[in-house]
Lab assay of single mutants.
Amino acid sequence: NITNLCPFDEVFNATRFASVYAWNRKRISNCVADYSVLYNFAPFFAFKCYGVSPTKLNDLCFTNVYADSFVIRGNEVSQIAPGQTGNIADYNYKLPDDFTGCVIAWNSNKLDSKVGGNYNYLYRLFRKSNLKPFERDISTEIYQAGNKPCNGVAGFNCYFPLRSYGFRPTYGVGHQPYRVVVLSFELLHAPATVCGPKKST
Rank of each mutant, 00 (worst) to 15 (best):
N1S: 11
N1M: 10
I2E: 14
T3L: 09
C6V: 05
P7R: 14
F8Q: 04
F8S: 03
D9P: 08
D9S: 13
E10T: 10
V11F: 07
F12N: 03
N13G: 09
N13W: 05
N13L: 08
A14F: 04
T15S: 15
R16M: 10
R16D: 12
A18S: 12
S19E: 02
S19C: 07
S19I: 01
S19V: 01
V20C: 05
V20S: 04
Y21T: 06
Y21E: 02
W23P: 04
N24T: 14
N24R: 15
K26E: 07
R27Q: 13
I28D: 01
I28A: 07
I28Q: 02
S29F: 10
N30H: 11
N30R: 08
C31S: 06
C31D: 07
A33Q: 08
A33W: 14
A33H: 08
A33D: 06
D34Y: 05
Y35M: 13
S36K: 12
V37D: 11
V37P: 08
L38S: 04
L38I: 15
L38C: 05
Y39M: 14
Y39P: 08
F41W: 14
A42G: 15
A42S: 10
F44Q: 12
F44H: 14
F45H: 15
A46H: 15
A46R: 14
A46M: 14
A46V: 15
K48I: 06
Y50C: 01
Y50L: 01
Y50G: 00
V52D: 04
V52Q: 05
S53K: 14
S53P: 09
P54A: 15
P54Q: 12
T55W: 11
T55K: 13
K56W: 06
L57C: 05
L57E: 06
D59S: 14
D59K: 12
L60M: 15
L60T: 10
C61N: 13
C61L: 07
C61I: 09
C61V: 10
T63L: 09
T63W: 09
T63P: 08
N64G: 11
N64W: 09
Y66P: 01
S69K: 04
S69F: 05
S69N: 05
F70E: 00
F70L: 03
V71W: 02
V71I: 10
I72Q: 02
I72N: 01
G74S: 04
N75H: 15
E76Y: 03
V77H: 04
V77E: 02
V77G: 02
S78T: 10
I80E: 00
A81D: 04
A81N: 05
P82Q: 03
G83K: 13
G83C: 09
G83Q: 09
G83N: 11
Q84F: 06
Q84R: 12
Q84K: 13
T85W: 09
G86H: 03
G86M: 03
N87S: 14
I88V: 10
I88N: 01
I88Y: 01
I88G: 02
A89T: 00
D90E: 09
N92G: 03
N92L: 01
Y93H: 01
Y93F: 05
K94C: 05
L95G: 01
L95C: 05
P96R: 06
D97W: 10
F99V: 03
F99Y: 05
F99T: 01
T100Q: 10
G101R: 02
C102S: 02
C102R: 03
C102E: 01
I104G: 05
I104E: 00
W106E: 01
W106A: 05
N107L: 03
S108F: 02
N109M: 06
K110E: 10
K110S: 11
K110W: 07
L111S: 09
L111P: 07
D112F: 03
D112I: 04
S113N: 02
K114D: 10
V115D: 10
V115Y: 11
V115A: 11
G117Y: 03
Y119M: 09
Y119L: 06
Y119V: 07
Y119G: 08
Y121C: 06
Y121A: 07
L122S: 13
L122C: 11
Y123S: 15
R124E: 00
R124W: 01
R124T: 00
F126E: 00
R127V: 01
K128Q: 12
K128D: 12
S129L: 08
N130H: 14
L131E: 00
P133S: 07
P133A: 10
P133Y: 06
P133M: 05
F134Q: 09
E135R: 08
E135N: 07
R136Q: 10
D137N: 03
S139A: 11
S139D: 13
S139H: 09
S139M: 08
T140D: 14
E141C: 07
E141Y: 09
E141N: 14
E141A: 11
E141G: 12
I142Q: 05
Y143C: 03
Y143N: 02
A145Q: 04
A145I: 05
A145N: 06
N147A: 07
K148Q: 13
K148N: 12
K148H: 13
K148C: 09
K148R: 12
C150R: 03
C150W: 02
N151Y: 10
V153P: 06
G155S: 06
G155P: 03
F156H: 09
N157R: 03
N157L: 02
N157K: 02
C158A: 02
Y159T: 00
F160C: 08
F160L: 12
F160K: 15
P161Y: 03
P161D: 01
P161S: 05
L162R: 04
L162N: 04
L162P: 00
L162V: 15
S164M: 06
S164H: 06
Y165T: 01
G166H: 05
G166A: 12
G166T: 06
G166K: 06
F167E: 00
R168S: 02
R168M: 05
T170E: 01
T170G: 06
Y171G: 00
G172T: 00
G172Q: 00
H175D: 06
Q176V: 03
P177M: 02
R179G: 00
V180M: 09
V180R: 02
V181P: 00
V181I: 08
V181K: 01
L183H: 01
S184V: 11
F185P: 04
F185D: 02
F185H: 04
L187S: 15
L188W: 13
L188E: 15
L188Q: 15
L188A: 15
H189L: 10
A190L: 12
P191M: 09
P191G: 14
A192L: 13
V194R: 12
V194C: 10
G196H: 11
G196I: 11
P197F: 15
P197V: 15
P197T: 15
P197R: 15
K198C: 11
K199W: 15
T201N: 14
T201I: 14
